[in-house]
């Protein structure tokens, strides 16, 4: 024979039988202890005598009882949405955020004729404490992640800004602002590197010193803006007529220096110089002006005409002087 009363009184669940008028017909030990009354004293007494239920909770309880009895099915109060139905002092001994025990309550039809239901009351306080702690922690974590993300974003923006500024500074230091060609600094670096490398390997390279013919006149008659556009056009032409491995630089004013690496002999340089003279000499139209711009080129060859920066530039310049003296629109190799 199973002693049901012993089991019922030892359960860690509150059991309360009430009717639709909220009169108590049974309370197990768990309910009595938590609500501070003797089980037998509650029988046939109204629920309100032992529990201080506000109007909303009373109405809600009556609705739940009706649902359970009508549908012969359980009806539920959940901690998540209601926190508690029957105010019972929280029995947790540590400091709690909850004044009252947090409850899940299942209302089951008990006696449909007598309109009685059973309330099964589960103490969910510890669970809710844990849940709230977790929620607090996740909120703090989410906040920390948000702050971290904002910081990362700011750092990324700053980094991008720095990269952009670095690029700008590099451009300013190494490029000619008008034609975007490498400037004298780059020429200096590349020419030194070429000398260094080719001294070891014994390979040849050429230095082409190009100067536009009568450019001052163009500037004086058509204006500096047209002159600038011509310089841009020449820069593009030089890039188109040379290899990617060659170095085209603006030396200053209307002077350009081109480094032609890995050449077999002087003939190659002659061909390149000739091609440049011919291409530059093609008629061009800038704004409404039909122009015929020509250039002269002086050529020096490494190592024949020099094995250092100054000698190579100086000898190419001397060859340029010869080309100018010979009527311009031509090239000369340093003798």
């Amino acid at each position: 024979m199973i002693r049901c009363n012993t089991i019922i009184d030892s359960l860690n669940v509150g059991i309360l039988i009430i009717d639709e008028d909220l009169t108590i017909h049974f309370a197990n030990k768990w309910v009595a202890i938590h609500a501070n009354f003797e089980p037998e004293d509650a029988i046939e007494h109204p629920l309100s005598q032992f529990f201080d239920l506000d109007e909303n909770r009373l109405k809600s309880l009556k609705r739940h009882i009706k649902t359970a009895l009508t549908l012969s099915s359980p009806s539920f109060f959940t901690t998540d949405s209601n926190h508690y139905l029957l105010p019972m002092k929280n029995s947790v001994t540590t400091k709690s955020v909850f004044e009252f025990m947090q409850q899940d309550i299942t209302i089951l039809p008990y006696d449909k004729e007598k309109k009685q239901v059973t309330l099964l009351i589960y103490d969910q306080t510890s669970l809710m404490e844990e849940k709230m702690r977790c929620e607090k922690e996740s909120e703090a974590l989410a906040q920390a992640v948000k702050v971290a993300n904002t910081t990362i974003k700011k750092l990324e923006t700053a980094k991008n800004k720095l990269i952009k500024q670095k690029d700008i500074i590099y451009q300013q230091a190494h490029c000619d602002h008008l034609t975007s060609l490498p400037n004298r600094t780059v020429l200096n670096q590349r020419l030194h590197r070429l000398i260094e490398n080719n001294l070891e390997t014994g390979k040849k390279f050429g230095v082409l010193f190009l100067d536009l013919d009568n450019f001052k006149e163009i500037n004086d008659t058509l204006g500096h803006d047209v002159g600038d556009m011509i310089l841009i056009h020449i820069a593009k032409t030089l890039l188109l007529c040379t290899r990617k491995t060659d170095t085209v630089t603006r030396f200053g004013g209307d002077e350009f220096i081109i480094l032609i690496d890995s050449i077999e002999d002087e003939e190659t340089l002659k061909n390149i110089a000739s091609k440049l003279i011919e291409t530059i000499g093609q008629p061009i139209q800038i704004r409404h002006h039909h122009l015929h711009v020509t250039a002269s080129i002086g050529v020096s060859l490494f190592p024949k005409h020099g094995t250092d920066f100054n000698a190579l530039i100086k000898n190419a310049d001397l060859a340029l002087y010869l080309a100018k003296a010979d009527g311009r629109d031509t090239y000369r190799i340093h003798p």
Binding site: N56, H64, L71, S73, P74, S75, F76, T78, S81, H83
Partner: peptide, 29 residues
């Protein structure tokens, strides 16, 4: 259900659970 402008989210949740409890019990029953 509560005959007032409900502001507390717990009350909204409780109301919805009451409603769904009825429909679920009736249908599954």
């Amino acid at each position: 259900l509560l005959q007032q402008e409900v502001e507390d989210e717990g009350d909204v949740k409780a109301s919805i659970l009451e409603l769904t409890n009825i429909i679920t019990s009736a249908c599954i029953g």
